[in-house]
């Protein structure tokens, strides 16, 4: 009887395993040319924008989008190696270099929002209300107030480094300058916990605001503009790239319906839009 019992349970385990095993091809068998790999920044995912846009795109075109949310730097590195089909990124200087080197085609303006300098309410460096981000960064450095940097080569990180450069300060290695190496959401959480300053994109900040206790201290400086472009990875460099899919996604992002969704996104929840649609505009004309 005992033996029978054991045989039964072994048979049961094996049959359960084989059912699970047979279910595997069903999830793995997706037509490959229908897949698009979108490499993008954490801000588009963490703010929830892609959760709204992608179902619309997938429904109307039949493509399946695999979103890999990393920093802009890593997204472009994926594009350079042909491991992504299309990029949605916000690091204009790096993007121009990417295009000049021939890794991408058809770079198009999608939307913008802005960066803000956030920090604790008591504002130890006294930067609140400053109109100039460069001035604010100088004050932070001169008072040695702790500044939390992304330090991950993302678009936000690139913007922050360019401001330090413009301010003529090299924060690298300073005691008050700390790097998280994490995405925007997590960096904001760290900054909130340790009551430090940081540079953030407005979209992620608004989405996380309820848990943070950090205030917007500097905003509205033209330097702080945060511009998103969509770039198709050059199929001439990497023949395996799904160029038709990339083009469809790129067209979708600048389409009128999409731009309308972007305009309205977040208004209901946060009282103000998180992104401003810019398709067809000139980059230089923004923020003026």
């Amino acid at each position: 009887m005992k033996r029978l019992n054991r045989t039964c349970s072994i048979a049961l385990i094996i049959s359960v395993m084989s059912v699970v095993f047979c279910a595997l091809p069903a999830i793995a068998a997706q037509p490959q040319h229908k897949n698009i790999i979108l490499a993008t920044t954490t801000s588009t995912q963490d703010s929830g924008l892609l959760d709204v846009l992608l179902p619309v795109f997938e429904k109307s075109t039949g493509y399946f989008v695999k979103t890999i949310a990393v920093g802009s730097g890593q997204a472009m590195a994926m594009g350079q190696k042909g491991e992504a089909d299309v990029l949605l990124v916000h690091s204009p200087d790096a993007e121009k270099k990417f295009m000049a080197e021939g890794y991408g085609v058809n770079r198009r303006l999608v939307m913008h929002n802005d960066f803000i300098i956030v920090g604790p309410k008591n504002d130890p460096a006294g930067i609140k209300g400053s109109r100039s981000s460069i001035e604010a960064f100088r004050k932070i450095a001169s008072t040695s107030a702790v500044f939390m940097s992304r330090g991950d080569n993302s678009g936000t990180d690139a913007k922050e480094k360019s401001i330090w450069k413009a301010a003529g300060i090299n924060p690298e290695g300073q005691k008050w300058y700390q790097q998280t190496g994490l995405g925007m959401g997590q960096t904001l959480s760290v900054a909130a916990e340790k009551k430090t300053y940081t540079l953030a994109d407005r979209g992620t900040y608004l989405a996380l605001k309820k848990n943070l206790g950090l205030d917007i201290l500097v905003e509205g400086d033209a330097v702080l503009l945060n511009i998103y472009h969509v770039i198709e990875v050059n199929p001439a460099k990497w023949p395996k790239v799904n160029s038709a899919g990339a083009k469809a996604f790129s067209d979708f992002m600048v389409g009128r319906q999409t731009q309308d969704i972007i305009r309205k996104f977040g208004v209901e929840k946060y009282g103000s839009p998180l992104f401003f649609p810019d398709a067809g505009k000139k980059e230089d004309a923004l923020g003026k």
Binding site: T42, Q45, D46, G48, D51, L54, F64, K66, T67, I68, A69, L182, G183, M184, G185, Q186, L188, S189, A207, L208, K210, N211, L212
Partner: peptide, 22 residues
Amino acid sequence: GGNIKGYTRVLTTATVMETSKG
């Protein structure tokens, strides 16, 4: 896996993402 919604999102990767979303 890439933490793709409805495709390769598992419990641990979803936890990481929701944490970073706050």
